[in-house]
Each structure stands twice: as structure tokens, then as C-alpha cells.
Computed example of a mutant assay.
Amino acid sequence: MRVTVAGAGAVGRSIAAELVEADHEVMLIERDLAQVEPEAVPQAEWVHADACELASLEEARLQGCDVVIAATGDDKVNLVVSLLAKTEFAVRRVVARVNDPRNEWLFTDAWGVDVAVSTPRMLAAMVEEAVSVGDLVRLLTLRQGTANLVEVTLPANTPLAGKAVREVPLPREAALVVILRGGRVIVPQADDPLEPGDEMMFVAGEDVEEEIQRVLKGEPA
């Protein structure tokens, strides 16, 4: 997969290094010459250019990319990069970094963003997930406003203990995608029994999150 990362600061470089390690073809675009250090991620292609300029993106052949990641420290830049990538170059997947949580509402498909990643929100979610048992925690928004990755840890007194996955009356707009149990990753099957302490992760629409919460607490839907 060919991936372009706009912004070669600490975040952009870290993303590029991880993608290169996973055998993806990566291009880093950075307008600040002082930040252009090819030795930092030598396997990546480095381009000294302004990712907000259409001509620069054309020269970098952005239309040949499968994914664009707008990872600069400026939300305005990330929005412009996302919009150009989606509307001018028809990039299939656009991921954008949100630096200021107050701007998160802007990072939608109207600006070409498929996935918005808010570091403050994710850190808060990780803290909440670490201390919350029995409560639903939103970990990540997928395709802004359409679906979320949410997590619930079943408490010791869960009424679902011993019940099979197929016996849990989840709403149609929710899918149980994985169960974490004692260091194991379980891809849930219909007859798998649930246990106290199970970390259950769902992909679900925001409008059914409360229903999932009620179902897992054994309350009537």
C-alpha cells in the first residue's frame, strides 16, 4: 500500500516508521526544510514541499496513493490537505490528526476526512477504559459520525456470565468484533460463552450505544 504522510514532525515520522516497518510504501511531505531529515526514516521517500499547494501534490503524484495521513500540528493545514486529497486526487482513504478538540466538529467528510484522530480524546478514552468496568467507553470514531469503536468490560456480577454470544440481543446496528480475555484475543463465535472481566469491543452507530449498555447490564432494551 502506498501512503503519504503530510507533516514530518515527531508524529509524522513515528507514523511513517511504523508503516515502513509494516512493509508499506511511504512518502513524507514537509514544507519546513529544517524538518526534512531523510536519515530519520531512510526507507521513506521525502519531499520538501507545501502539502497545501495543489501543484506540489501533483508533482508528488498524490493520485497514486491509497491513503493520505494529514499529521501536521496545524488543524487548518490538515483540513486543507484532506480536502485536496479527496476532491482533487480521489484518494480512497484520508486520515486526519485533530490537534485542538474544539475543532473536531470540522473533521468530517465535508472536508474529505474519512477518519479523524483526536489525540486528547484518545488519551481520555484510554484513561476512562482503564478505570471503567461495566460502562461503555468510546475509543475511536470511524468515518466521522457514522460508527464508533466502543468497549465494555463485563463486571464480576454480570448477568451475561455463561451466556453464549448468540444469546446477547444486540441491536442490528452493532457488531461485536473482538473479546479480550486474560491476554487472549478472541474472535467471537456464536456459541462462545461470556465471562466476567471480558473486554468486549463493538463497532456501532452512536444512536445504539445506550441500547448496548442496557443489554450488557441485563436491562430490557
Rank of each mutant, 00 (worst) to 15 (best):
R2Y: 10
V3K: 02
V5M: 04
A8V: 10
V11H: 07
V11F: 10
R13L: 13
A16K: 09
A16R: 10
A17W: 05
A17F: 14
E18D: 14
L19C: 08
V20C: 11
H24Y: 03
H24R: 06
E25D: 14
Q35G: 05
V36F: 08
E37N: 12
E37S: 12
E39D: 14
A44S: 06
V47P: 01
V47G: 03
S56G: 13
E58F: 12
E59K: 09
R61I: 12
L62C: 06
G64H: 10
V68K: 07
I69S: 00
A70G: 14
T72G: 07
G73A: 08
G73M: 10
D74W: 04
D75P: 11
N78F: 02
V80K: 01
V81N: 06
S82K: 05
L84F: 10
K86P: 03
K86M: 06
F89R: 01
R92L: 08
R92C: 03
R92D: 15
V95M: 10
V95E: 15
V98E: 07
D100E: 15
P101Q: 09
P101E: 15
R102M: 07
N103W: 03
D109S: 14
G112A: 08
A116V: 01
P120S: 11
R121C: 00
M122G: 02
A125S: 15
M126P: 00
M126E: 15
E128S: 05
A130T: 14
A130F: 01
V131E: 13
S132Y: 00
V133Q: 04
L136H: 04
L136E: 00
L136P: 02
V137R: 00
V137D: 00
V137K: 00
Q144Y: 10
G145V: 09
A147C: 03
A147H: 09
L149A: 10
A156Q: 14
N157D: 15
N157P: 01
T158I: 10
P159D: 15
P159K: 04
A161F: 08
A161K: 06
G162D: 12
R166L: 08
P169Q: 12
P171M: 08
E173I: 04
A175H: 04
V177K: 02
R181D: 08
G183N: 00
L194W: 00
E195C: 03
G197K: 02
M200T: 01
M201R: 13
V203N: 11
V203S: 06
G205E: 15
E209D: 09
I212F: 01
V215W: 01
K217N: 13
G218A: 12
